[in-house]
Amino acid sequence: MALKVIGAGPGRTATFSMKFALEHLGLGPCYHMVEVFRNARRNIPLWLDVVDGKPDWDAIFEGYQSVTDNPACVYWRELAEYYPESKIVLTVRDAETWVESCNETINSPRMLASLEGSELMRMLQGTYLRQFGDKIDDPEWMADWYRAYNQEIIDTIPAERLLVFHPKEGWEPLCEFLGVPVPAEPFPRVNSRDELGGASDEQGGLPADPVELENFAGGYVEMLRAKAFG
């Protein structure tokens, strides 16, 4: 199954809401970092192959119609080329608030320290985190990086293939771009602080053990799904 929609926005740009939206529109399942977690023993080795320069995109996205979030968005250019019929959705937000949100969740010292020495951390260092080098604690640099990242996508992907989208716009622009009917339900909204990073506060981060990670993520994504259209 070839991907039909590629979400190019990095984590903390409403990528969880976008996952649920695409699935609600019949373009699911939608791959997201939580899918890496939910089947960690299968998926982390596949992403480590990507890190080692041996990507098998068909294996990674087997059974999925769409993708959003890290680590896949790091490879937006490669995926757009590999799936030439796909459409690209760039979810966006204010650069400074993006940095703040990342610092509270996926880039927080608590989160990263909980994974130190694990295979998951090696995967993150080779995909998502490698983009920032030693600048992850520099808010001004990170905001500039985010603006440049978005602009590069806008400058690279043909306009007819790209939607630059803020979820506050609701269903209409997304549905028009994808050529699907507008649902009666409200656009899914997942509380930005209540995503996977925030939910890990009680245990001080994410489980480094793959089995524990799978159990944690499996229950959490279903809880969020139940809330998304509330």
Rank of each mutant, 00 (worst) to 15 (best):
H24M: 06
L213C: 06
E140M: 01
R130A: 14
P207I: 08
V182I: 15
P55F: 10
L196Q: 09
I136G: 03
S192V: 12
P109D: 00
R130M: 14
P45C: 10
D134F: 00
W47K: 07
A59D: 13
E96K: 14
A184I: 05
G7Q: 09
K135L: 00
Y31I: 06
S114D: 12
R93D: 14
D56Q: 13
K227T: 13
V50W: 04
T91W: 01
I6G: 06
K87M: 12
N107W: 05
K54R: 15
L224S: 00
I106F: 12
D194Q: 13
E85V: 00
P109M: 01
F132E: 00
H24L: 11
I60L: 10
N215H: 12
H24Q: 13
R110W: 05
K4W: 00
Y31N: 09
K135V: 00
C30F: 05
I157P: 10
C175W: 08
W47T: 04
V50R: 04
E96S: 14
C102I: 07
D52Q: 15
K227P: 00
V164H: 07
N43G: 05
R161D: 11
E185S: 14
Y83G: 04
F37R: 01
R41S: 15
D137V: 03
T91F: 01
I60P: 00
T97W: 10
F37E: 08
D49I: 00
E62Q: 14
P29Q: 08
P173I: 01
E176V: 09
E202A: 15
P158N: 08
N107D: 00
W171G: 04
A199C: 10
Y31M: 09
K227N: 09
F165E: 04
P188K: 02
H32I: 03
I136P: 02
V221L: 11
F16L: 14
H32E: 03
V34F: 12
G11I: 02
V211Y: 04
N43R: 15
P181H: 03
D56Y: 07
Y128K: 00
G53Y: 08
V190Y: 01
D134K: 07
W98D: 10
A184Y: 01
P183W: 05
A2S: 15
D56T: 03
G205W: 08
A14M: 04
A8Q: 11
